[in-house]
Measured scan of single mutants.
Amino acid sequence: STAGKIFRAMYDYMAADADEVSFKDGDAIINVQAIDEGWMYGTVQRTGRTGMLPANYVEAI
């Protein structure tokens, strides 16, 4: 389960779609929910934006 875990971005990511979020390497991602194998839903702490993000760009900390 991803509940209550904080994730950290390992790479920069530029949102490719309106429902995705952009983030930079080192950003903390909070309130994360796993959607499926490849995608998560969460909030980028630095920007306050919430949306979909690729699971392979982040790691649990």
Rank of each mutant, 00 (worst) to 15 (best):
S1C: 06
S1Y: 15
S1W: 11
A3K: 11
A3H: 14
A3M: 12
A3T: 13
A3C: 09
G4H: 07
G4F: 07
K5N: 15
K5F: 13
K5D: 09
K5E: 13
K5R: 09
I6C: 13
I6H: 12
I6E: 12
F7W: 12
A9K: 08
A9G: 04
A9I: 02
A9D: 00
M10H: 05
M10L: 13
Y11W: 10
Y11R: 15
Y11H: 15
Y11F: 07
Y11P: 00
D12K: 03
D12E: 07
D12W: 00
D12L: 00
D12S: 14
Y13P: 05
Y13D: 10
M14T: 15
M14V: 15
M14D: 13
M14L: 12
M14P: 03
A15I: 00
A15W: 07
A15P: 08
A15C: 06
A15G: 08
A16H: 10
A16P: 06
A16N: 06
A16G: 09
A16Q: 12
A16D: 08
D17Q: 10
D17G: 14
D17C: 06
D17S: 14
D17V: 04
D17P: 00
A18K: 12
A18N: 12
A18M: 09
A18G: 13
D19E: 03
D19M: 07
E20A: 05
E20G: 08
E20L: 00
E20T: 05
V21I: 09
V21M: 07
S22G: 06
F23D: 03
F23V: 06
F23K: 07
F23L: 07
K24Q: 13
K24N: 11
K24M: 10
D25F: 07
D25A: 15
D25I: 09
G26T: 04
G26P: 02
G26Q: 02
G26F: 02
D27L: 00
A28M: 15
A28Y: 09
I29N: 06
I30T: 11
I30M: 08
I30K: 06
I30W: 03
N31V: 04
N31R: 06
N31T: 01
N31W: 04
V32A: 12
V32M: 05
V32W: 03
A34C: 14
A34K: 13
I35G: 08
I35R: 12
I35S: 07
I35E: 06
I35L: 14
I35W: 09
I35D: 09
D36F: 10
D36H: 10
D36P: 06
D36G: 12
E37A: 10
E37I: 11
E37L: 04
E37F: 04
G38T: 11
G38E: 13
G38W: 09
W39A: 05
W39S: 09
M40R: 02
M40Y: 10
Y41N: 10
Y41C: 08
Y41E: 09
Y41A: 05
Y41V: 11
Y41Q: 11
G42E: 02
G42A: 03
G42T: 01
T43V: 02
T43P: 00
T43Q: 07
T43K: 06
V44T: 00
V44D: 03
V44G: 06
V44C: 04
V44S: 04
Q45C: 12
Q45A: 13
Q45F: 05
Q45V: 14
Q45Y: 09
Q45H: 09
R46G: 03
T47A: 02
T47M: 05
T47V: 04
G48R: 07
G48E: 07
R49K: 14
R49Q: 15
T50H: 11
T50S: 15
G51R: 01
G51L: 01
G51I: 00
G51H: 11
M52K: 15
M52R: 15
L53D: 01
L53W: 01
L53Q: 02
P54W: 02
P54M: 06
P54G: 03
P54L: 01
A55P: 04
A55S: 12
A55D: 03
A55F: 02
N56Q: 10
Y57V: 05
Y57S: 10
Y57T: 09
Y57N: 03
Y57W: 07
Y57Q: 07
V58R: 02
V58Y: 04
V58W: 01
V58Q: 02
V58I: 12
V58F: 03
V58A: 04
E59Q: 09
E59A: 08
A60F: 06
I61Q: 14
I61F: 10
